[in-house]
């Protein structure tokens, strides 16, 4: 089973036909359009079936066996990324993500820029954990942080938001 990226199934929200190309990450079959996400197509080994909201976090999901990562949990490392900071994938999931399905899912969902909190909701992991993983992936170059294309002054934002809300 090759790990060549497949765009063949693009836009259809189902697995590509075997003849049209293999699946990038077998465990994580994510439709290209995040909006079309069917929750059950992403299984990260986190939901204990039928147990309400109770979840398990896959061991090593965050630190990938790096003992230093454990110590820094919740401290400086991941804290720099805002809940509403945007990240975008710098590459498609590859062989390395096969053993780290969380990262594969993050790369899939971040094909287009996503806020950290949206990413967490889409990959269905606690946002604190996603923040840690994302920080790592930014460090590796798999993800990029992006600031707003047109930074605006606070006052201008407020006025624009008021106009936007009124026209809802």
């Amino acid at each position: 089973m090759s790990a060549e990226g497949s765009k063949a199934g693009g836009g259809h929200g189902h697995l590509p036909h075997p003849d049209t190309g293999p699946v990038p990450v077998p465990e994580v079959a994510v439709p290209p359009a995040a909006e079309a996400e069917a929750p059950d197509t992403v299984w990260l080994g986190l939901d204990s079936a039928g147990a309400g909201r109770e979840r398990f976090l896959r061991p090593f999901a965050v630190d990938a066996g790096d003992p230093d990562a454990v110590r820094s949990h919740g401290t400086a490392r991941g804290r720099g990324i805002d809940l509403l900071g945007h990240v975008v994938a710098a590459r498609t999931p590859g062989r390395r993500e096969r053993l780290r399905p969380e990262r594969g899912a993050i790369l899939e969902h971040a094909r287009h820029a996503r806020t950290l909190v949206e990413l967490a909701a889409e990959v269905r992991l606690p946002v604190g954990q996603v923040r840690e993983i994302v920080a790592d992936m930014v460090g590796e170059g798999a993800l990029q942080l992006c600031g707003p294309s047109r930074p605006l002054a606070h006052q201008d934002i407020l006025h624009a938001v008021l106009v936007g809300l009124k026209s809802l």
Partner: peptide
């Protein structure tokens, strides 16, 4: 890709 300013 245009990145909007996210506010909350």
């Amino acid at each position: 890709e245009p990145i909007p300013q996210a506010v909350k």
